[in-house]
C-alpha cells in the first residue's frame, strides 16, 4: 500500500513539474517575457529591473530553475490591467467560483448517482427510459445553451430569478442549476452502465441464487463494486466543472475565476492567464491524486497491479 501511495504521489509531482515547465516553454515561445509579463507600456527601467530580477541575461537552464523557484514562492508577475500581483487578482476570485462549483458537484452526485442506480435496477422500464432520454442532454446540450435557456425561462419569461450578476443567493441559483443538471446527467448515464455491468457478473447471480435477499445483494455486492468505476468519473467531473465554470460564469456574469480567465485571454493579460493555468493544474492533479488514493483504498486488486507495473 505504501508503494502505491508513493507511486501515485510521485506521478502527481511529475505532472506538476510538467505543467510548470509547459508554462515556462509557452511563455518563452510567445515573446520577450519581460514585455509579456509587464505589458508593452511598461517603463524601460521596470523592464530592466524585471530582467535582472528574473535573470533573463543568464543561460536558459538557470532561468528555468529561477522560474521554478519563483513559481513556488508565489512570485508570478503582475496583472497587466491594474498592476497588482496576478496571484492576488486570481486569489480573490476563488471563493466565488467555489461558491457555485461545490454546490453543483453536490447536485451532480446527489441526483446523478441515485438516478443511475435506479435506472439500472429498473432496466427497460419507463423510469429507465425517462432517465436515459433526459440524460442525453448531458452529452449534447452545451452549457451555454442550457444556461441561456434557463435564463430565458426563469429570468426573462417568469422573472423569478436574476439573469446575471452576483451578490445574493438568488444570483447563484441559475449557474448552480445549469452545471448541476449537466453533470448529473453524465453521472447518471455512467453509473447506470457501471451498475449494469456489475449486475451481469456471475458473483451477483450466485449471491442471489444462494437465496440472499435481493436488497442485501444490491447493498453488499453490487453498489460496492459499481462504486469503483463511478469514482473515476467523479474525478473527471471536477475537470469538466472547471471547464464548465468558464462558460457558465460568462453566461451569468458571475465574477469568478472562469470569467476572469475569459477576460484575461481576451485582453491577453498573460500573467493572470498563467496563474489560472497553474492553479487549475494543481487542482486537477490534487483531485486525480485523491481519486487514485481512494481507488486504491477501495479496490486492493488495483493497488497490487499498479505496484507490479512499477511505473
Amino acid at each position: 500500500m505504501l508503494a502505491y501511495v508513493l507511486n501515485r504521489m510521485g506521478r502527481a509531482l511529475v505532472t506538476i513539474v510538467i505543467i510548470v515547465s509547459l508554462a515556462f516553454v509557452i511563455l518563452r515561445l510567445s515573446g520577450d517575457p519581460a514585455i509579456t509579463i509587464l505589458g508593452p507600456e511598461a517603463p524601460p527601467q521596470a523592464v530592466e529591473a524585471f530582467r535582472k530580477a528574473w535573470g533573463l541575461d543568464q543561460p536558459i537552464w538557470v532561468q528555468y530553475l529561477k522560474y521554478f523557484s519563483a513559481v513556488f514562492q508565489g512570485d508570478l508577475g503582475n496583472s497587466m490591467r491594474d498592476g497588482r500581483s496576478a496571484l492576488a487578482v486570481v486569489w480573490e476570485r476563488v471563493p466565488l467560483t467555489l461558491a457555485i462549483t461545490v454546490p453543483a458537484l453536490l447536485i451532480n452526485i446527489l441526483i446523478g448517482l441515485p438516478a443511475g442506480v435506479l435506472a439500472a435496477l429498473l432496466r427497460n422500464t419507463a423510469f429507465d427510459r425517462l432517465i436515459m432520454t433526459v440524460s442525453v442532454i448531458g452529452f449534447t446540450v452545451p452549457s451555454f445553451v442550457m444556461g441561456l435557456t434557463l435564463a430565458l425561462v426563469f429570468a426573462v419569461s417568469f422573472r423569478l430569478l436574476p439573469s446575471g450578476g452576483s451578490g445574493t443567493i438568488a444570483h447563484a441559483v441559475l449557474p448552480v442549476v445549469t452545471m448541476g443538471i449537466i453533470g448529473a446527467a453524465v453521472i447518471a448515464r455512467f453509473t447506470r452502465s457501471a451498475m449494469l455491468e456489475v449486475l451481469g457478473q456471475p458473483y451477483i447471480r450466485t449471491a442471489s441464487a444462494k437465496g440472499a435477499a435481493w436488497s442485501r445483494v444490491i447493498m453488499r455486492h453490487a453498489l460496492a463494486n459499481a462504486a469503483i468505476p463511478t469514482m473515476t468519473i467523479i474525478g473527471f467531473m471536477v475537470g469538466s466543472l472547471v471547464a464548465g465554470a468558464v462558460v457558465v460564469e460568462s453566461v451569468f456574469s458571475w465574477p469568478g475565476v472562469g470569467r476572469l480567465l475569459v477576460t484575461a485571454v481576451a485582453n491577453r493579460d498573460l500573467a493572470v492567464v498563467q496563474v489560472i493555468l497553474l492553479f487549475i493544474g494543481f487542482t486537477m492533479v490534487t483531485a486525480n491524486l485523491a481519486v487514485d488514493l481512494l481507488y486504491g483504498w477501495v479496490d486492493p486488486r488495483l493497488r497490487t497491479k499498479a505496484d507490479r507495473a512499477g511505473t
Binding site: 505532472t15 509557452i26 469538466s240 471547464a243 480567465l261 498573460l270
Partner: peptide, 23 residues
C-alpha cells in the same frame, strides 16, 4: 503514455484558452 496522462488530466478548454491567450 505520460503525454496522454497529462493531456487527460487537464480540461482541454483551459489548455485551449491558454494557447489562444499566448499566441
Amino acid at each position: 503514455l505520460m503525454m496522454i496522462d497529462a493531456q487527460a488530466a487537464m480540461p482541454f478548454m483551459i489548455i485551449a484558452l491558454a494557447v489562444l491567450a499566448f499566441f
